[in-house]
Protein backbone atom coordinates (compact mmCIF):
# COMPACT_ATOMS: atom_id res chain seq x y z
CA UNK A 1 0.00 0.00 0.00
CA UNK A 2 1.56 3.34 -0.98
CA UNK A 3 1.66 5.33 2.21
CA UNK A 4 4.59 7.22 3.71
CA UNK A 5 5.44 8.35 7.22
CA UNK A 6 6.98 11.80 7.30
CA UNK A 7 9.56 13.02 9.81
CA UNK A 8 8.02 15.11 12.60
CA UNK A 9 9.82 15.55 15.92
CA UNK A 10 7.01 14.78 18.34
CA UNK A 11 4.35 13.25 16.16
CA UNK A 12 4.13 11.51 12.78
CA UNK A 13 3.23 12.89 9.36
CA UNK A 14 1.15 10.51 7.23
CA UNK A 15 0.69 10.61 3.49
CA UNK A 16 -1.53 8.29 1.45
CA UNK A 17 -1.20 8.10 -2.31
CA UNK A 18 -3.22 6.35 -5.03
CA UNK A 19 -4.50 6.61 -8.57
CA UNK A 20 -7.91 7.65 -7.27
CA UNK A 21 -9.16 9.45 -4.16
CA UNK A 22 -10.54 6.11 -2.91
CA UNK A 23 -7.15 4.41 -3.19
CA UNK A 24 -5.32 7.38 -1.61
CA UNK A 25 -7.67 7.35 1.40
CA UNK A 26 -7.33 3.58 1.74
CA UNK A 27 -3.55 3.90 1.65
CA UNK A 28 -3.58 6.57 4.34
CA UNK A 29 -5.89 4.54 6.59
CA UNK A 30 -3.62 1.52 6.09
CA UNK A 31 -0.73 3.69 7.30
CA UNK A 32 -2.74 4.45 10.45
CA UNK A 33 -3.66 0.79 11.04
CA UNK A 34 -0.03 -0.31 10.60
CA UNK A 35 1.03 2.20 13.26
CA UNK A 36 -1.50 0.92 15.79
CA UNK A 37 -0.73 -2.78 15.53
CA UNK A 38 1.34 -5.24 13.53
CA UNK A 39 -1.53 -5.89 11.09
CA UNK A 40 0.02 -9.26 10.15
CA UNK A 41 -1.03 -10.50 13.59
CA UNK A 42 -4.69 -9.46 13.15
CA UNK A 43 -7.27 -11.69 11.44
CA UNK A 44 -10.09 -10.04 9.44
CA UNK A 45 -12.82 -11.90 11.34
CA UNK A 46 -15.43 -9.16 11.54
CA UNK A 47 -16.49 -6.11 9.54
CA UNK A 48 -17.13 -2.69 11.06
CA UNK A 49 -18.71 0.09 9.01
CA UNK A 50 -17.26 3.60 9.30
CA UNK A 51 -18.29 6.87 7.73
CA UNK A 52 -17.12 10.46 7.83
CA UNK A 53 -17.59 13.81 6.18
CA UNK A 54 -15.56 16.90 5.43
CA UNK A 55 -15.66 20.19 3.58
CA UNK A 56 -13.03 18.99 1.09
CA UNK A 57 -11.05 15.79 0.40
CA UNK A 58 -8.39 16.74 2.96
CA UNK A 59 -10.76 17.30 5.90
CA UNK A 60 -12.69 14.19 4.80
CA UNK A 61 -9.41 12.24 5.11
CA UNK A 62 -8.79 13.59 8.63
CA UNK A 63 -12.39 12.88 9.69
CA UNK A 64 -12.15 9.32 8.38
CA UNK A 65 -8.84 8.67 10.17
CA UNK A 66 -10.42 9.98 13.37
CA UNK A 67 -13.48 7.77 12.83
CA UNK A 68 -11.17 4.75 12.56
CA UNK A 69 -9.35 5.75 15.78
CA UNK A 70 -12.73 6.12 17.53
CA UNK A 71 -14.00 2.72 16.29
CA UNK A 72 -10.94 1.03 17.74
CA UNK A 73 -11.90 2.24 21.22
CA UNK A 74 -15.63 1.72 20.84
CA UNK A 75 -15.41 -1.83 19.46
CA UNK A 76 -12.30 -2.92 21.38
CA UNK A 77 -10.97 -4.33 18.10
CA UNK A 78 -7.73 -4.16 16.21
CA UNK A 79 -8.12 -3.76 12.45
CA UNK A 80 -5.86 -4.91 9.66
CA UNK A 81 -7.52 -3.52 6.52
CA UNK A 82 -9.89 -0.85 5.28
CA UNK A 83 -11.90 -0.56 2.08
CA UNK A 84 -13.72 2.49 0.81
CA UNK A 85 -17.24 1.69 -0.39
CA UNK A 86 -18.27 5.06 -1.62
CA UNK A 87 -17.22 8.69 -1.75
CA UNK A 88 -19.69 11.34 -2.78
CA UNK A 89 -19.99 15.07 -2.81
CA UNK A 90 -23.28 16.78 -1.99
CA UNK A 91 -23.74 20.53 -1.59
CA UNK A 92 -20.06 21.12 -1.04
CA UNK A 93 -19.87 18.33 1.57
CA UNK A 94 -17.65 15.34 1.00
CA UNK A 95 -18.78 12.06 2.48
CA UNK A 96 -17.16 8.65 2.58
CA UNK A 97 -18.05 5.29 3.99
CA UNK A 98 -16.18 2.05 4.13
CA UNK A 99 -15.51 -1.17 5.97
CA UNK A 100 -12.82 -2.00 8.52
CA UNK A 101 -11.77 -5.63 8.87
CA UNK A 102 -10.51 -6.89 12.22
CA UNK A 103 -11.14 -8.75 15.46
CA UNK A 104 -11.36 -8.20 19.24
CA UNK A 105 -8.09 -7.31 20.98
CA UNK A 106 -6.06 -10.34 22.01
CA UNK A 107 -2.84 -9.28 23.71
CA UNK A 108 -1.44 -12.82 23.39
CA UNK A 109 -1.47 -12.59 19.59
CA UNK A 110 -1.58 -8.93 18.66
CA UNK A 111 1.70 -6.99 18.57
CA UNK A 112 0.58 -3.57 19.83
CA UNK A 113 2.04 -0.41 18.30
CA UNK A 114 1.36 3.30 18.85
CA UNK A 115 -1.69 4.89 20.39
CA UNK A 116 -2.65 7.60 17.91
CA UNK A 117 -4.51 10.35 19.74
CA UNK A 118 -5.88 12.07 16.65
CA UNK A 119 -5.42 13.10 13.05
CA UNK A 120 -4.94 16.88 12.89
CA UNK A 121 -5.32 19.64 10.29
CA UNK A 122 -1.61 20.36 10.62
CA UNK A 123 0.33 19.86 7.40
CA UNK A 124 -2.98 19.18 5.68
CA UNK A 125 -2.60 18.81 1.92
CA UNK A 126 -4.47 17.30 -1.00
CA UNK A 127 -2.66 16.87 -4.28
CA UNK A 128 -5.06 16.30 -7.16
CA UNK A 129 -3.45 15.17 -10.40
CA UNK A 130 -5.23 13.23 -13.16
CA UNK A 131 -3.54 9.92 -12.36
CA UNK A 132 -2.30 10.55 -8.82
CA UNK A 133 -4.10 11.70 -5.68
CA UNK A 134 -2.27 12.33 -2.43
CA UNK A 135 -3.53 13.19 1.05
CA UNK A 136 -1.40 14.26 3.97
CA UNK A 137 -1.78 15.28 7.63
CA UNK A 138 0.03 15.10 10.99
CA UNK A 139 -1.03 12.46 13.52
CA UNK A 140 -0.88 13.36 17.22
CA UNK A 141 0.89 10.51 19.01
Amino acid sequence: MPYTYLEHEADIGLEGTGETLERAIEAGVQGLLDLMVDTETVEPVENVAVSAEGTDPATLFVALLNAVIAERDITGFFFNRFQVNEIDQVDGHWRANGILHGEPVDFDRHAVGNEVKAATYSGLRFIDQPDRKSLRCVLDI
Partner: peptide
Protein backbone atom coordinates in the same frame (compact mmCIF):
# COMPACT_ATOMS: atom_id res chain seq x y z
CA UNK B 1 -10.01 8.96 24.49
CA UNK B 2 -12.60 11.47 25.70
CA UNK B 3 -10.18 14.36 25.40
CA UNK B 4 -8.93 13.14 22.03
CA UNK B 5 -12.49 12.87 20.71
CA UNK B 6 -13.36 16.40 21.91
CA UNK B 7 -10.50 17.59 19.69
CA UNK B 8 -11.78 15.51 16.77
CA UNK B 9 -15.34 16.77 17.20
CA UNK B 10 -14.41 20.45 17.49
CA UNK B 11 -11.88 20.50 14.65
CA UNK B 12 -14.57 21.01 11.96
CA UNK B 13 -16.68 23.21 14.28
CA UNK B 14 -13.78 25.58 14.92
CA UNK B 15 -12.75 25.53 11.28
Amino acid sequence: ALGHQIGNDYQPILE
